[in-house]
């Protein structure tokens, strides 16, 4: 069949993805920006809203599906990756997105996050990391820094935080990226690449909670400091940063270090980013680089292709049908030893 016989798809706009529900996040919340970038990015995929499902857990970020004019489920705390797994296996044609937060994905739902990622379903997981529990009004989260003073830690947190990207890489993630709520172009492009990637795409978005953890990422967003504190990684390019683009990351043995360009150090001495490496060593190394010792990497750190869970699952079913024919109930009931009573 010739493709030009098909009617042209209507061109969708950001507004086509907005539901009629009032958005109820606090004014100034970083979530607004992420919602806006998602709505702006989605038309570029050419997927109609009825083929898209947003699944979320519990928390401020998890209200997201209500604001999208797509299919959606605002589920229970931590379980969105497992629900999304069921949706995707049931109907692999759907574009499935998980919207989650640092508490939802890494505390109560840690197990599901690990297993969704290792299975490598073709879904997209966007983790809004604000390093705080917002909806329960300000307790520390599994990404809050050590010593963080919150309502539940008036003398400072004694819990070690974990790095979402390191966790994802440890779980064999095939796509790992980080962006920042207010870095809108970068965020939009990161979401687009996550959608385009075949397999589980894991995106961490640093998101400001202006009520309970305001300015947690100010060092990355402040106009005066961000060039020196952020490392935007790009595939095939050297890792250079700084207001004057005069600093870089070099490998000393197996340890990264910050160096200044010039004084005998050239671009060629720096680490070059390669998101396609089969082994995730470089991506892991990037996920460990923390402020203030290092600039914080943003961008796509890992982008590889691996077999996809739901495709393998359905291939087994297709193979069984091919070998044994479509299931026949009468045959099943009379398989093995039977006898007849006259």
């Amino acid at each position: 069949m010739s493709t030009d016989a098909l009617p042209a798809l209507p061109v969708l706009k950001a507004a086509d993805f907005a539901s009629d529900q009032d958005v109820r996040w606090c004014p100034g919340c970083g979530d607004y920006s992420i919602l806006a970038q998602m709505k702006k990015m989605l038309p570029s995929l050419g997927i109609p809203p009825h083929q898209i499902v947003f699944v979320s857990g519990i928390g401020c970020s998890s209200r997201f599906p209500y604001y999208m004019n797509t299919y959606g489920m605002h589920s229970i705390h931590g379980r969105a990756p497992a629900i999304a797994t069921g949706v995707k296996v049931a109907n692999p044609d759907l574009s499935v997105w998980v919207i989650t937060g640092d508490g939802d994905a890494l505390s109560i739902g840690g197990n599901h996050l690990l297993h969704a990622i290792r299975r490598n379903l073709d879904i997209n997981i966007v983790l809004f990391n604000n390093q705080i529990y917002g909806l329960t009004k300000g307790q520390y989260s599994p990404t809050s820094p050590l010593g963080k003073v919150t309502k539940s830690t008036p003398f400072g947190s004694v819990d070690n935080p974990l790095s979402p990207l390191s966790v994802a890489i440890g779980a064999e993630a095939t796509f790992v990226a980080r962006s920042i709520d207010v870095n809108i172009k970068h965020l939009s492009e990161t979401l687009r690449r996550a959608a385009e990637h075949r397999g589980t795409s894991f995106v961490e978005v640093y998101q400001n909670c202006n009520i309970f953890n305001d300015k947690a990422f100010e060092y990355l967003t402040d106009r005066n400091t961000k060039a020196d504190t952020t490392l935007e990684v790009e595939h095939g390019k050297p890792m250079i940063f700084g207001k004057n683009r005069d600093k870089g990351i070099r490998l000393n043995g197996i340890t990264p270090e910050v160096v200044e360009l010039g004084k005998g150090i050239s671009e060629d001495d720096l680490l070059f980013h390669d998101e396609k490496l089969e082994e995730p060593t470089l991506a892991y190394l990037l996920s460990r680089m923390r402020h203030p010792e290092f600039p914080v990497p943003i961008g796509v750190m890992r982008y590889v292709e691996r077999p996809i869970f739901e495709q393998r699952l359905h291939a087994q079913i297709d193979e069984a049908v091919k070998k044994r024919g479509d299931g026949d109930l009468n045959k099943l009931f009379q398989s093995g030893e039977t006898w007849t009573v006259a």
């Binding site: 699944v55 489920m73 629900i83």
Partner: peptide, 12 residues
């Protein structure tokens, strides 16, 4: 995950 994945599949 057993029950929630099942809920996802039922939704779909």
């Amino acid at each position: 995950a057993a029950v929630t994945s099942t809920i996802g599949a039922a939704f779909a």
